[in-house]
């Protein structure tokens, strides 16, 4: 049975997998929408709930109050869980990345458009003929560059 407590613990773990901050002021992955996407990712994982449950149980068996630990201890504990349960932990990491970066509001923070890439795409100006001539001039000047047979 999945509980609210599971939800809370999962989001605390997601906070550590992709933490907030940095120069780009990125949000952490520990939000309800990411957690829900991870748990429902059956199109991309055989059994996401099972993988997440293994990780949650391993965390709880090592620390009754994961959220109450100082940040360095939370990370250290997760590294132990990763070492003990590599397959489910790696699956959780993979699904977290998928859920987090599939949110269109995240992409612009990294310089990528939020929009679907069709039909708009990106405006990229073609280099002028003069620029291409200048750039390729040294290559042309060296002459034939293939083996003549």
């Amino acid at each position: 049975m999945w509980t609210d407590r599971n939800d809370e613990l999962l989001m605390k773990i997601l906070d550590e997998i992709i933490p907030a901050g940095g120069a780009r002021r990125m949000p952490s992955a520990g939000v309800k929408a990411v957690a829900e996407s991870v748990l429902s990712a059956t199109a991309y994982s055989d059994n996401p709930v099972e993988s997440v449950t293994v990780v949650l149980q391993a965390v709880e068996s090592r620390a009754g109050d994961f959220a109450g630990l100082p940040a360095p201890e939370r990370v250290a504990l997760l590294k132990l869980v990763e070492a003990d349960h590599p397959a489910p932990f790696n699956e959780l990491v993979r699904l977290t990345y998928m859920a987090y970066y599939s949110r269109p509001e995240i992409r612009p923070l990294l310089g990528v458009g939020a929009h679907p890439v069709h039909p708009g795409g990106y405006e990229v100006t073609r280099e002028s003929e003069d620029l291409m001539n200048d750039l390729t001039a040294p290559v042309r000047a060296r002459g034939i560059a293939y083996r003549q047979v």
């Binding site: 997998i17 933490p19 997760l78 990294l110």
Partner: peptide, 26 residues
């Protein structure tokens, strides 16, 4: 971003999680 974080196109090798993840992506 997602494909890069998961290791790149055609590769199944996600980049590290945690603070290192933040550093690599930023």
């Amino acid at each position: 971003p997602m494909t890069f974080a998961l290791g790149g196109y055609g590769i199944d090798s996600p980049i590290p999680w945690g603070e290192e993840h933040r550093e690599i992506m930023d």
